[in-house]
């Protein structure tokens, strides 16, 4: 009877988990810690970390202030990045429209009202997190599916033609092309 060689059981997570943590301070002075793999999803933050020369030894002593993003958005962003830090890279984009359904976890995370979502998008844009941008825009885009212009105005809070005209008239006294 042969004996199976004993292989040490190692949790995959343990091996992958990188002990380096970074500290981020939001515009309203909330402090967040984020792992190295997660923070790499933000091109802006990772560039900053590289430029500042932060290392495993000094990372926690040097919090990174992010003045354009408030604590609420930063919390969502940190959660998102931690969740997706080990994702494989997306396949190359083709001219086919990708069939894509947002994972349930992310749908829940992004179930916030439109104004909050647009704020999150601006923060995501600033921090340059491609995947979160893709997901947020997907949520925004899904709202438009098969809607009339009138419905879209309500959904996105777009001013009506009349409001627009009034704005335009007040903004400029010069005659239009027909006037």
């Amino acid at each position: 009877m042969s004996v199976e060689p004993e292989v040490p059981i190692v949790q995959v997570e343990e091996v992958r988990e990188n002990p380096v943590l970074y500290k981020i301070i939001s515009s309203d002075n909330h402090v967040f810690t984020i792992s190295e793999h997660a923070v790499k999803l933000s091109k802006t933050l990772w560039d900053l970390i590289t430029n500042l020369g932060l290392t495993a030894e000094n990372a926690l002593d040097n919090p990174i202030p992010v003045e354009n993003v408030n604590g609420k958005n930063m919390e969502t962003i940190v959660q998102f990045c931690e969740r997706h830090k080990y994702d494989e890279e997306e396949p190359e984009y083709t001219n086919y429209i990708r069939e894509f359904v947002l994972p349930e976890w992310d749908r829940q995370l992004l179930s916030i009202d439109n104004e909050e979502l647009f704020q999150l998008i601006l923060a995501t844009n600033y921090l340059d997190i491609q995947k979160l941008m893709d997901y947020c825009c997907r949520v925004i885009g899904d709202m438009a599916k098969d809607k009339t212009p009138e419905e879209l105005r309500i959904i996105y809070g777009i001013p009506t033609d009349a409001e627009d005209d009034a704005l335009e008239r007040s903004a400029s006294d010069s005659p239009g092309p027909s006037g």
Partner: peptide
């Protein structure tokens, strides 16, 4: 507050 029209 930001809205669709203000998006970059």
């Amino acid at each position: 507050m930001p809205s669709l029209i203000q998006m970059p």
